[in-house]
Amino acid sequence: MRKLRRYGPPLALIAPSVFLIGVFVYGLIIASFQTSMTDAHTSAQFTGVQETHFVGLQNYIDILKTDNFQHSLRNLLLYTVVFLSGTMFFGFLWAFLLDKRARAEGFIRSVYLFPMAVSSIAAGVVWKWLLNANTGARASGLNRLFQLIGLDFLQNKWWSNYNWGIAAIAIPAIWQMSGYVMALFLAGFRGIPNELREAARVDGANEWQLYRHVIFPQLSPVALSAIIIIGHMSLKGFDLIVAIAKPASYETRVPAIDMYQFQTEGNYANASTVGIILLLVVLVLIVPYLVHTARAEKNR
């Protein structure tokens, strides 16, 4: 009874969310998992006009075996690494630069955030121009800009490169999301009570020491939020890729695009399989986070 009084209110508060996620996420994932274990490779099978069979993990084996899907996975990894490190770097740097109140802070902050307001569809229109592959006399976009400012050696074919092209797509993604990571860090910086800062200053800490020993350690939960948010965006990175490249472009294929292609073909078994593989990849990303939280709990 005491337990109920103690734990009843928080449980009641969170119950609706748990229910909704249970239905809209887990229910659908289970449905998707079931489909991934069948041979429903056409609409006719999926809708029951033709019969389907249970095939176990065969789809997973078939898909993982293909060169093209391995290429997609490799691209995803590359994209995630570049996107994540870029946004974390710029987001943190900008928050750090702004924390100590710059002139016209509000204006600068809004400008840094602005790219996020430009939807991927719209951003794709302009970045498609900027990432133009022409160099030399016919150069346009960023390559042309490099020429104008005398950095000709930086010219390159951007995403038209089957090994590293996907990293070029991460540039607009970094442009879009760094401002948000900045906001996260800024909220973190500003959530730290002034007393803490003052106390450290009274103790004789200089600015750097203040950040190094007082402020940064407080930010790790915020940094983790940022990593997870950006990480999940990169896994789902789809809008931006198809706004700049094409679903068919080999250079920029990632699993989300494979999934899309399978879906347009009515190949629900394969689309679900890729979806579940993506979820498994997420598990890899999220497990360290959970371990960290659990450890933090223990230490408390």
């Binding site: 089957y162 679903p247 068919a248 292609q261 190949n267």
Partner: peptide, 16 residues
């Protein structure tokens, strides 16, 4: 549609 997707991917891969 499935054949078209696969042909497109093959062409993109080859041209790249």
């Amino acid at each position: 549609i499935a054949q078209g997707n696969a042909i497109n991917l093959a062409v993109s891969k080859f041209v790249s």
